[in-house]
Design a protein around this nucleic acid. Structure first.
Length: 447
RNA sequence: GUGGCUGUAGCUCAGUUGGUUAGAGCGCCAGAUUGUGGUUCUGGAAGUCGGGGGUUCGAAUCCCCUCAGCCACCCCA
C-alpha cells in the first residue's frame, strides 16, 4: 500500500486543458503573423539568467517578485520576470553583430512571485516586440500600428490604444522643479482614473513630497484629455502652454502631434487610438512615447498591451547606447478577458475528420485511408477501439468533429465510403477509389 | 507580502440549532432484438466534505494551522 501524493499545482500556476490550449495557440500564431508582417524576427533566450543580470535594473518591487535560487554549481540564478531585461542582455551581446535597427519578437513564459488575481498569474506568457537601435519616431508610430493590427487580427474591434509621451510629463516636472521625485509622482499619477484627482493629489503631497500647487498642476495637465473629450488636437493645444518654455515638454507635444497624424494617415480609426496625457506607466526606464491598451468592454482587467520608448536599453551591460521602442502583449490576461467576454470558441479537436474503427478485420485499410487523407492535407483521427458505432460517433460528436468518414463491411464491399457531416446531420456517398481528392474536396467545400 | 470573502462528487450547488449508511441537477459509464451521434427511458460508478490538528459521546457543520481560488492594497501583462 503506497501513500498517494495529492495532485496539485502551485499558487498562480495552471494546467492548460485542450479547450484552453487551442485558443492559446491560435493567439500565439496570430501574434507571430502580425509581428512577421512588419519584419520583426523571432528570438529566444534562456529561462534562467545570472541573478545580477535580472536584479540590476527595475525596482525593489520586481526584485521581491523574482524567483531566485542557487543552482547545482552554486551559481545564484533567477527566472526571467519579463522579456525586456533578457532583451537588454541579449542586445548588449549580439546587436553589434546583428546591426541596427534590430527588430525582434519574443513570445515566452515569464515568472513573477506576486499575489495572483483574475488575469494575473505567477507564470504567464508575454508576446513582446521591439525595435532596437533607432531613435526614429517612425518606429514609435509603427509600434502603434502593430498593436492595432494585432488586436484586430485577434478579433477585437472595441479597444483603445492610449498614447502619451513621457517628455510631456518630464517637461512639466522639470518646469515645476520636481524632476528628482518623478518616479513617485508618476506612480501616483498613474492611479488617476482609478482613485480620482483628490486622492492623487493627496498621494503626491504625502508620499511623493510634492507641494499642493505642484500636485494640482500635474493633475490639471493630466485631466486635459478628459476635459476636452479626447480630441487630440484640442488636447495638445491645451497642453502646449502648460509646458511651454521647456525643451522636453515642447518636443513631447510635437512628437505626439506627429504621431497622431501619422497613425491616422495609416488608416487607423480615431476611436482606436487616443491621446491621453494621464497615462504615465510606473516603469522608470521609459523616456518617450508610452502605450497602454484597454478593451472597451472590460477596462477593469487592465492594459492588455503596454510599452514605450526608452533611450538606453542596455546601459547596465554595455557602454553602447541602445535606444528602442516596443510593447508587450499580455497573452494570459487577454485570454482571461476573452474568456470573460465569451469570445473563446470551444473547439476541442484539432482534426477535421473522424474515422470510426468499424470493421475489425480492416485495420490496415483504415490506417492506409487515414494516411492518404493526411497526405491530402486533412487532419484525421482514427478511433483506437472497435467498439459500437454509436459510441464512436458519440465520442466524435463530443469532441466537436465536423466530419465522420464511415466505412464498414457494406462500403468496403461496394468500394464506397460514407462521409457524414456531423453538424448538418447528413451523409454523402463517395467512391473509395479516388476518395482522397473527393473527400478532401467535399470537406473543403463544407467547411 | 498585508487584509477580507470562499473551498461539499468531473462541473454547478443543497446540506436544517453539530447527531445514524452526505444529496440533487448536469456530465461520465453501461443497457433499451449487436451498422450510425446532440432527444427519451432504465441501471451504474464516483466524494479522505481542500489538507492537517483540536474541542465533543458524536463535526461537512465549532476552534487553530496550512494549501488553493476570488477581491482590495501594492505592482503590473
Amino acid at each position: 500500500m503506497s501513500q498517494l501524493i495529492q495532485p496539485r499545482v502551485l499558487k498562480g500556476f495552471r494546467d492548460y486543458l485542450p479547450e484552453a490550449m487551442m485558443p492559446r495557440e491560435r493567439l500565439i500564431e496570430t501574434a507571430r503573423q502580425v509581428y512577421r508582417s512588419y519584419g520583426f524576427a523571432p528570438i529566444d533566450t534562456p529561462t534562467l539568467e545570472y541573478l545580477e543580470i535580472l536584479t540590476g535594473k527595475g525596482s525593489e518591487e520586481t526584485d521581491k517578485q523574482l524567483y531566485k535560487f542557487e543552482d547545482q554549481g552554486g551559481r545564484n540564478v533567477g527566472m526571467r520576470f519579463d522579456l525586456t531585461v533578457p532583451l537588454a542582455r541579449f542586445s548588449a551581446m549580439h546587436v553589434p553583430q546583428l546591426g541596427t535597427p534590430f527588430k525582434r519578437y519574443h513570445i515566452a513564459t515569464v515568472w513573477r512571485g506576486e499575489a495572483p488575481q483574475a488575469g494575473r498569474y505567477r507564470e504567464f506568457m508575454q508576446c513582446d516586440f521591439d525595435t532596437i537601435g533607432t531613435t526614429s519616431s517612425v518606429s514609435d508610430i509603427e509600434t502603434t500600428l502593430v498593436i492595432h493590427d494585432l488586436l484586430r487580427a485577434i478579433g477585437f474591434s472595441a479597444f483603445t490604444i492610449r498614447i502619451n509621451n513621457r517628455l510631456v510629463l518630464t517637461g512639466l516636472l522639470e518646469k515645476l522643479g520636481l524632476s528628482e521625485k518623478s518616479t513617485l509622482v508618476l506612480r501616483a499619477l498613474d492611479k488617476l482614473a482609478k482613485i480620482g484627482p483628490d486622492k492623487v493629489v493627496a498621494e503626491m503631497t504625502e508620499i511623493a513630497g510634492a507641494s499642493q500647487a505642484q500636485a494640482t498642476a500635474i493633475v490639471n495637465l493630466a485631466n486635459v484629455s478628459e476635459d476636452v473629450g479626447g480630441d487630440s488636437s484640442a488636447v495638445l493645444s491645451r497642453v502646449a502652454p502648460m509646458v511651454s518654455g521647456n525643451e522636453k515638454g515642447e518636443a513631447g507635444v510635437e512628437l505626439l502631434q506627429e504621431h497622431m497624424a501619422a497613425v491616422s494617415a495609416a488608416g487607423v480609426s480615431p476611436q482606436a487610438v487616443r491621446l491621453d496625457v494621464a497615462i504615465a506607466r510606473g516603469l522608470d526606464y521609459y523616456t518617450g512615447v508610452i502605450y497602454e491598451t484597454f478593451l472597451n468592454d472590460l477596462p477593469g482587467i487592465g492594459s492588455v498591451c503596454s510599452g514605450g520608448r526608452y533611450d538606453n536599453l542596455a546601459g547596465l551591460y554595455t557602454k553602447q547606447q541602445l535606444p528602442g521602442v516596443g510593447a508587450s502583449l499580455g497573452l494570459d490576461r487577454l485570454l482571461a478577458a476573452m474568456e470573460q467576454l465569451g469570445l473563446i470558441e470551444k473547439v476541442r479537436t484539432p482534426a477535421d475528420v473522424f474515422i470510426p474503427f468499424f470493421d475489425e478485420t480492416r485495420l490496415h485499410d483504415y490506417l492506409r485511408i487515414a494516411a492518404e487523407l493526411r497526405a491530402a492535407g486533412l487532419g484525421v483521427e482514427f478511433y483506437p477501439e472497435s467498439k459500437k458505432l454509436d459510441k464512436q460517433l458519440k465520442y466524435a460528436d463530443k469532441r466537436g468533429f465536423r466530419f465522420a468518414l464511415i466505412i464498414g463491411g457494406h462500403e468496403f464491399a461496394e468500394g464506397k465510403a460514407q462521409l457524414k457531416d456531423l453538424a448538418q446531420r447528413e451523409s454523402v456517398e463517395l467512391i473509395l477509389e479516388d476518395q482522397c481528392a473527393a473527400i478532401a474536396a467535399e470537406v473543403e467545400q463544407r467547411r
